[in-house]
């Protein structure tokens, strides 16, 4: 009796949860569908059309030719920027005088909107893969660098003294004290960098190449292949969402302690 009640209540709660997640997306898609059928606008496509086209367009050799290289580019640029930004950030974070010296120059470089580097690097390197990687690195490195500097500066002096007392130095000092202390800020910088990396990947391909995700989407738009264009927009959206989910997954693991500390502080 009570058991059945509990089960029923749990089922109801589960049902509510599913409704919370799905209701609004379903309503929005239905509205879109209705609108695209009724309006007969040239630029819209029904969700059904887009879904069909999506399968046809992207689950073909295009996947290997356009999608995989673009994503590879994105990840390579992001990884390089992460390594470069963290390394430089640690060096600058640890030496106050160097930091004071280069700070205004860094502030200026950070303030340059990264996309303007695309035309510049096209001039310097030409239109090729290294150019695209260079664009992504030169745009992504700043948030990582500046956040790492902040994080390294914020190392707790008591913890630093503890390390000195117990003779923790060298590599272990760097990995256990400095990098871990700074990891919340480093992760915040990486998250910003990831968003910038996607933008730069797309526009460096839109600008001047003959393959890649950004190129294909612009191509569809120029040839007025409307459902194909929409499917490309959806694909970019899915890419953004997937990377964001993967990043959140990594972050939850890396910063488990940080969220624990914060939750413990809130409970007090």
């Amino acid at each position: 009796m009570t058991m059945a009640n509990t089960v029923a209540r749990a089922a109801r709660r589960g049902g509510v949860r599913v409704a919370e997640i799905l209701l609004l997306p379903v309503v929005l898609i239905a509205l879109w569908w209705g609108y695209s059928v009724v309006s007969a606008s040239y630029y819209t496509a029904t969700p059904g059309e887009i879904a069909t086209t999506f399968g046809e367009v992207w689950f073909s050799e295009r996947f290997m030719v356009d999608v995989v290289p673009s994503v590879g580019l994105l990840l390579a640029g992001f990884a390089l920027a992460a390594v470069l930004g963290t390394t430089l950030g640690v060096v600058l974070g640890l030496s106050p005088n160097t930091r004071a010296t280069v700070e205004p120059v860094l502030e200026f470089f950070r303030a340059i909107p990264p996309p303007v580097l695309v035309p510049l690097l096209m001039l310097l390197i030409g239109v090729n893969t290294p150019m695209k990687v260079a664009v992504i690195v030169s745009g992504c490195v700043w948030p990582v660098l500046l956040n790492t500097i902040e994080g390294v500066r914020g190392v707790d002096p008591v913890l630093a003294d503890t390390c000195r007392c117990y003779g923790v130095r060298g590599r272990r000092w760097l990995t256990t004290l400095v990098l871990r202390s700074a990891s919340p800020q480093i992760m915040a910088g990486l998250r910003q960098a990831l968003a910038i990396a996607i933008i730069l990947m797309v526009i460096s391909e839109m600008f001047a190449t003959t393959s890649g995700l950004g190129f294909s989407i612009v191509q569809f738009q120029r040839s007025f292949a409307i459902p194909e264009m929409w499917s490309g927009i959806v694909l970019l959206g899915l890419l953004g969402v997937t990377l964001s989910i993967m990043f959140a997954w990594v972050e939850r693991r890396v910063l488990r302690w940080y969220h624990g500390v914060r939750a413990a502080a809130r409970d007090e």
Partner: peptide
């Protein structure tokens, strides 16, 4: 808040450059 959070979490990471072709057309 509860009924919109899934939609927000999906829409937010969509890179805005994905909208470029749409913006050009419109």
């Amino acid at each position: 808040r509860r009924f919109t959070s899934s939609t927000v979490e999906f829409l937010r990471p969509i890179p805005s450059v994905a909208l470029i072709p749409l913006a050009i057309l419109m």
